[in-house]
Amino acid sequence: MIAFSSRFNVLRPSRLFLGLAAGLVLAGCASEPETRPCPQAVVLSDASRQVKFSGQGRDLTDVLFEASIETGRLICEYDENVLDVDLQVQVIAARGPANSDRLANVSYFVAVARSDQSVLARQSFDIAIPFPGNRTRVSGLEEIGQVITLQGDEDGGDYRIYVGLDLTREELEYNRANY
């Protein structure tokens, strides 16, 4: 059984630095380092970028936003046969000329798979990233929690966590043709 949870924050660069610094301080307070491995987190290259257009046009002036996704810190805690994984996912959005709403509505997925790539669970997450003031580029940081029930002598090394943007068929073809 695998369960997901999430928290999202839009961060300014200074807050991002403070959040990462606080995480490092808290990590230093851990009583004992875990010696068993975490799952590997992988961003799928075909689903790492998204260009969202307004209507049917595909000109630069028709771009609502461009988004990309990256993984960050990955923390694992074992409790007997249960693996609790916290993964940071960063979504970066750039506002396009056709975006009068000053908002990027982005959907991405997180999937947990065995090392043989058989997917055990997949969940999509929707986030709205605002562009405050005159800002044209904003990043959001979300923490995704997964609880994985391990079987037999499995450990985190037997699993992969795949992350990507939810794309339409046309957006996927655009990525393959342009990146």
Rank of each mutant, 00 (worst) to 15 (best):
F4G: 01
F4C: 04
F4Y: 10
S5F: 11
S5Q: 08
S5R: 10
S5T: 12
V10S: 07
V10G: 05
V10I: 14
R12A: 07
R15Q: 13
L16Y: 07
F17N: 03
F17T: 11
L18S: 09
G19M: 04
G19F: 04
A22E: 12
G23A: 13
A27T: 11
A27W: 12
G28K: 01
G28F: 03
C29M: 14
E32P: 00
E32H: 11
P33R: 12
R36G: 10
P37K: 05
C38L: 09
P39R: 06
Q40R: 15
Q40D: 13
Q40E: 15
V42M: 09
D46Y: 11
A47K: 08
S48N: 06
R49L: 15
R49Q: 14
V51H: 09
R58G: 13
L60F: 14
D62K: 04
V63P: 06
A67V: 02
A67H: 03
S68D: 04
S68E: 05
I69S: 01
E70F: 12
E70R: 15
I75P: 02
I75W: 11
E77L: 13
E80Y: 13
E80M: 10
N81G: 07
L83P: 03
V85W: 08
L87I: 08
Q90I: 14
V91N: 10
V91M: 05
I92F: 02
A94P: 00
A94V: 13
R95E: 09
A104K: 07
A104R: 08
A104M: 08
N105F: 10
N105R: 15
N105V: 13
V106Q: 03
S107C: 10
S107I: 11
V110R: 08
V110N: 06
V110C: 12
V112A: 12
A113D: 00
A113G: 06
S115Y: 12
S118W: 03
A121K: 07
R122W: 07
Q123W: 07
Q123T: 07
I127R: 12
I129C: 06
P130R: 06
P130I: 04
F131Y: 13
P132E: 07
V138N: 02
G140I: 06
V147Q: 15
I148F: 08
I148P: 04
Q151T: 15
Q151P: 00
G152I: 09
E154D: 08
D155A: 12
D155P: 04
D155Y: 09
D155S: 14
G157D: 05
D158W: 02
D158R: 06
Y159W: 00
R160H: 09
I161D: 01
Y162C: 00
Y162A: 04
V163E: 01
V163R: 01
G164A: 04
G164R: 02
T168C: 05
T168A: 03
T168S: 15
R169W: 10
E170T: 07
E171K: 03
E171W: 06
L172F: 05
L172Q: 05
E173V: 03
Y174G: 01
Y174W: 14
A177G: 03
A177R: 07
Y179D: 07
